[in-house]
Nucleic acid binder design. Structure first.
Lengths: 204, 204
DNA sequence: GTCTATACGAAGATAGAC
DNA sequence: GTCTATCTTCGTATAGAC
């Protein structure tokens, strides 16, 4: 009798540690920022030895930050894509709701790791983290643009509208953290819904 | 013959150094972020000895960051207030133009120091920098809200619109830096002008 | 292949010489 | 009052033992 043993069961921490490290990095970056997040604390938080971090990520902190941004960007994109199946307005509501939940549930401690990496310069001149951030923003914008077009919006206007949504959400999350209030996200919700409704009526 | 000597001429670096330190901090924070800005480099950049920094700012880096945010916030508010005298649409255009100039002229290296401080946690649990950031956002929002109301907008809607403008601008500046392109700012310009025009027509 | 122990530099902050 | 020199802690990264 041949028993096939799952490789993951034998080496449960192999790729699992790696994932934990990336997810942990995304979480710490969105809370404290990129430069305030040390690889030391990161390893401790993921219960991995410091050396393991550099084993999994030979590129050091830069590589870790890049993968964390891509991870968070993809996660958000997946939610956005799923909710946009119910139409642009429902997608917008879910998008805003997701951010509102993050901000409120963490008592205004957490924001968006993609934004954090976008505005913080890594000491080294490596541009990979910025590029990953740009890719995430572009991805979200494209998802929104496509959905708007599918529901009758003018293509050029759809991209403008999608960009406005992404920009306003990112800005609002930051404002909410500074103000320790969900006011900004709540206020832009009203306006953005109107903007989306107007766009799919081809008003512009 | 009595010669009145200007105190500033005698001690030219007295308050001048202090101002330079604050302005330099605002510039470095908006480029590299709060935690990537060291007090050492700051002092060097302002040609002040490290010790002077702690003489002028006993509160250390936290105080310096707080004053830098307030400084930048007031400077922006002054420009916004001046341009809003020509109406909300002109004010919006000038506001967007100012940010576009900063981002493009620095080859996408500089952004907004208020945003940087909003999303970066200082190691110490001091909340003063966050409060200064919140005050800046509130101030800008109030200026826009007042202008919109003066031109016929509904008060509640005016605040929502003003919040959308501030949030979208902050988010766009960050996106522009990640993408190394002014695309985001240019795209939201079109939409925001429409939003403002609609608001002062009391359409909502 | 995994991790402990360490190297080396730079951070924030201060004590005390001028 | 101004600033130099220094203290302590923490950062990234790695060398080499298991």
């Amino acid at each position: 009798m041949t028993v096939v043993i799952d490789k993951e069961a034998l080496v449960p921490d192999s790729q699992d540690s790696r994932r934990k490290l990336v997810a942990g990095a995304a979480d710490m970056i969105r809370r404290r920022g990129l430069n305030a997040t040390s690889v030391r604390e990161l390893a401790k938080h993921a219960r991995a030895p410091l050396g393991s971090t550099y084993h999994y990520f030979p590129g050091g902190k830069t590589q870790l930050a890049t993968e964390a941004v891509t991870f968070a960007g993809d996660l958000t994109a997946a939610l956005l894509a799923r909710e946009l199946e119910n139409g642009p307005v429902e997608g917008l509501r879910a998008f805003l709701g997701m951010w509102r939940k993050i901000v409120v549930d963490t008592d205004f401690q957490a924001g968006c790791p993609v934004l954090a990496v976008s505005i913080e310069d890594l000491p080294a001149g490596d541009e990979a983290p910025h590029q990953a951030a740009a890719a995430a923003f572009t991805h979200w914008t494209e998802l929104l643009t496509t959905s708007l077009c599918e529901h009758g919006a003018d293509p050029a206007d759809a991209e403008h509208t999608a960009t406005l949504i992404v920009a306003a959400v990112e800005g609002s999350v930051a404002i909410c953290r500074a103000e320790r209030s969900s006011r900004a996200l709540d206020h832009i919700s009203h306006k953005l819904e109107r903007v989306v409704e107007d766009a799919i009526r081809r008003d512009s």
